[in-house]
């Protein structure tokens, strides 16, 4: 492959339109991290087996390691860098910080975005709904409980507030 093999990809990431030249076989994960410098999106396996690379596409949880950027034209990609509103962290980010829901912090971006997708559709989820919604993101540090509690705290404060 050479530079001549690159194609133009138009993406809308965190509300900003961008057009870049990339090799067509690069995944969204690689484009975000390597071409757009958005290293907040992590990777744990690059095979869809841990969801550490999770982002949102049109508000739904997606695996950036398996998504092909060319297929995402016209869709809205949200990464952890786009979660805060300006300087104001999202209520989920505050709750995760306050309750110690981020230990090593490596699954945290995917966990937060997945939780955001849940709260956006279900502002007051039950514990069971939270477990179901987060069941696709592996965490090895917390035992998940502080994460559940943080989602509940954010929900009780109103995630859009």
């Amino acid at each position: 492959m050479s530079i001549a093999d690159k194609v133009e990809v138009r993406l809308r990431v965190n509300g900003e339109d961008t057009a870049i030249m990339v090799l067509p076989y690069k995944t969204l994960l690689e484009v975000l991290r390597e071409d757009l410098g958005l290293t907040g999106t992590k990777h744990g396996c690059e095979l869809g087996e841990c969801s550490t690379c999770g982002v949102l596409v049109d508000g739904k949880p997606f695996l950036s390691c398996l998504a092909m950027p060319l297929d995402l034209e016209g869709r809205e990609v949200t990464t952890i860098e786009g979660m805060a509103r300006g300087r104001e962290p999202h209520p989920l980010q505050v709750a995760f910080a306050e309750l110690g829901a981020a230990q090593c912090g490596y699954c945290t971006p995917a966990m937060l975005l997945t939780a955001k997708a849940l709260l956006d559709r279900e502002p007051r989820p039950s514990r069971e709904m939270i477990k179901q919604a987060l069941s696709g993101v592996l965490c090895r540090c917390t035992g998940y409980l502080k994460i559940f509690e943080a989602v509940e705290l954010a929900a009780s404060r109103g995630s859009d507030g």
Binding site: E81, P89, G105
Partner: peptide, 20 residues
Amino acid sequence: TKPDAYAKVSGQTKFADDLS
């Protein structure tokens, strides 16, 4: 709240593979 919490929840923490 621990000192590195906000860097972690914002994705700003630089892990080794994030360095370029």
